[in-house]
Write a protein that binds this DNA or RNA. Structure first.
Lengths: 329, 329
DNA sequence: CTGAAAGCGCTAACAC
DNA sequence: GTGTTAGCGCTTTCAG
């Protein structure tokens, strides 16, 4: 098997403490001993047993990332960035998929014993107030669906949605639909509010039939919603979708009815997936700074775990990426 | 803090051994004791400390999944399925991103001490023979770029590529390009071989200028490759791309030159990403059974870790999904 | 069937 | 500066 601290100590002719000191870079070690230990370390190929170290230190070396599904590009991209950010703090990331269901989210939280992870990053969609009895420090990505005392990292969703709809209005669109309303999702409510404000400031009417709910935010849901909009007596001339997948589905449905984007229908998405840069037409989208979100979330948790800092909310920047789905090339 | 075995034992008035027996479902425990222990378990909300358990058992409870990048849809989808499959074997999954570089892959392997994970699933792109001195049982997804004694799970890449190109030939295409050749990637070599065989069996010539290499397999690489093909004196009438991202990029580049897909140019991809179902036009693609790959890989590792089984190779099924990029609707 | 006790590999008092 | 030693929480002989 692998060498232990004791093996190294024996080989170097010193005690485990000295070896431990060298390995952890503590205090001063007599140069002579240091050299001998380093040679022994090299000779044995010693690698610390993280499990034992963490058991002793009372930490695990892991953080959990709880998200709906890795097959959703936004979360896949985010997960990659969280893993990279966690490395800077010597954390490994454990990914739990909830599939956006309450049961899935509860079971993910339940599996999150304090023995498994030091902290958690959550992207909940269905959790309720009672569920937030977390055994470890946590940070929410996105919005508080309910009012609960947990740190949060994310963009200003109202302002971002407003910017998207303003863009459509500035292009002369008057009958602007929204896809993605959802009764319990905090993020959906805020994006709807941004949509509402942009209409109001341009003195455009808020038309109920133009706001289409979506239970899920997959491409198929966007396509279905778009079809229902195209079936209206007066279809919209533009549509703001609450994420890029909905927008991709909407554009697909439009194409199937020979509705041209952007000439007949302008489309804006949200998330700025890589996919959206290469779609035909490419998709105008609200672009949250995902790297900033990932880094802020991990850094915040690190502060909380290390120094027991208080709750905090971090607002990260966003921008609007204008592409062919609103402005023909 | 949280209750330990000792706390539970004290409360139930028994020894830790008895509690441990109950928790682990071992042997027979006197009904009376069992009841008392169960009550104490309930009262304290006891949750075993995985770190301590694993330290004792000499296992970690984790497997590593080493892949290029989560922002690549194929790997994101696969990762989701591996996580689900690992749950069935009480394993948590640790994802390491290599970004497809040799340095990244080496550092991922190095961090894989036997103390961190029980086993590993690898999707290497650049590793060399010497690198395969793994400290834990491992399984390769995709192909052996080099000849090393490691288990492998994946589809028959030659047959799959051949099926894709046969499909193009059956549609009457004669001048079929290939995008994605790569000097060191085993998978690329096999797909190229399938392409070559399909041409040969139809007595079509193998034309060097129609085979375009791609250093990376991102959308931008597909677009660049397609542009070079469209610049040829006689451009191809069909193109087989070694993954869907290349194909999406190729279709985008074709559209920018007003080349119509599939009328002027038929396109086939590989991987069957969800994205490809909703692109315009939707993309014909070779569809590996990703769930089967994930399950086979995890199950194989479980057998090796538990019973020290020998190396084995598992071949998983695939199918060809025909869509609008080869057959107009 | 159950209890006592050893020890997985590591860190951190506490002595020297 | 360095050695000795006591645990972190758990599983597991080994007695009884």
């Amino acid at each position: 098997m692998l060498a232990t601290l004791k093996d190294v100590a024996r080989l170097a002719g010193v005690s485990v403490k000295t070896v431990s000191n060298v390995v952890n870079g503590y205090s001063f070690v007599k140069p002579d001993n240091r050299r001998r230990v380093e040679e022994a370390l090299e000779a044995t190929g010693y690698r610390p047993n993280l499990g034992a170290r963490n058991l002793r230190r009372g930490r695990t070396g892991f953080i959990a990332l709880v998200l709906p599904e890795l097959s959703i590009p936004y979360f896949a991209e985010l997960a990659g960035l969280v893993i990279a950010a966690a490395q800077d703090h010597e954390w490994n990331v454990l990914i739990e998929q909830t599939f956006g269901t309450l049961a899935g989210e509860r079971s993910a939280l339940a599996s999150l014993g304090p023995h498994l992870v030091d902290a958690a990053i959550l992207s909940p969609e269905a959790l309720q107030v009672d569920d937030f009895q977390l055994p470890v420090p946590a940070v929410l990505l996105g919005e508080h669906a309910v009012d609960v005392p947990i740190s949060r990292v994310g963009i200003d969703n109202v302002a971002a949605a407003q910017a998207a709809v303003r863009h459509l209005i500035s292009l002369g669109h008057q009958r602007i639909a929204a896809i993605g309303a959802h009764p319990h999702r905090g993020t959906a409510a805020l994006r709807l509010e941004g949509y509402r404000r942009a209409l109001a400031e341009a003195s455009l009417p808020f038309v109920d039939e133009l706001v289409v709910p979506a239970l899920n935010y997959h491409r198929a849901d966007g396509a279905a919603a778009m079809r229902s909009l195209l079936d209206l007596r007066t279809p919209p001339d533009a549509v703001f979708c609450f994420n890029d997948l909905l927008a991709i589905g909407a554009m697909r449905a439009a194409g199937e009815r020979f509705v041209r984007v952007p000439q007949d229908l302008a489309v804006v998405g949200f998330d700025n997936n890589e996919e959206s840069v290469y779609s035909s037409p490419s998709l105008t989208s609200v672009a949250p700074d995902k790297a900033a979100i990932a880094q802020a979330a991990v850094a915040l948790l690190h502060r909380r775990v290390e120094s027991g800092d208080a709750l905090e909310n971090v607002e990260t920047p966003f921008s609007l990426q204008v592409r062919e789905s609103t402005v023909a090339r």
